[in-house]
């Protein structure tokens, strides 16, 4: 079932149990290494199984590219923080950038709109909503929380 996108100006909720954290400069060159380390951590903890790896890859890629390029506008002095935590039977990922956020209705085309079908961008969030159990933007879009029920652990 496709989940709704939630957007608020509120600060993100505090995560009960952080199990992995990394802060990186806003450089796309560092994105893949961060993704690989995080995915391995989530596989080792049995938060996901290998069948789901491509979905996690996609969600992480969208989230990190957005944080680095759109949130921090590629400014390498600005940081992106990635935290992995546990909330009950769910894993939770929180990705923070130091940008000004965004307004989904204004800045992201609605992929359900027939006029958007031929656009070459704007599908990332739609795809994330398909797999995740929660997709919430806090601080006006500068903090992203993604969550999903743990597969095996």
């Amino acid at each position: 079932m496709t989940i709704p996108l939630t957007w608020t100006q509120d600060p993100p909720r505090s995560m009960a149990q952080v199990v992995w954290s990394r802060e990186i400069p806003s450089s796309l060159e560092l994105k893949q290494d961060t993704m690989d380390a995080l995915i391995q951590e989530m596989l080792d903890r049995r938060f996901i199984d290998s069948e789901e790896q491509h979905w996690l890859c996609l969600c992480l890629d969208e989230a990190l590219v957005n944080a680095i390029l759109h949130g921090n506008e590629g400014d390498e002095t600005a940081k992106v923080q990635v935290q992995l935590g546990v909330e009950g039977d769910r894993w939770v990922l929180c990705i923070d950038d130091q940008g000004q956020g965004f307004v989904p209705d204004q800045d992201v085309p609605d992929p359900e709109d027939s006029d958007s079908l031929l656009l070459e961008h704007g599908r990332g969030i739609r795809l994330m909503r398909e797999w995740l159990d929660e997709l919430t933007y806090y601080r006006g879009g500068a903090s992203l929380v993604m969550a999903r029920r743990r597969t095996l652990g």
Partner: peptide
């Protein structure tokens, strides 16, 4: 191809057009 992003889907759309 085992992994792809929405950026590739965008390229595919550009190619289709």
């Amino acid at each position: 191809v085992g992994y792809l992003s929405s950026a590739f889907i965008g390229k595919l759309m550009a190619l289709f057009k």
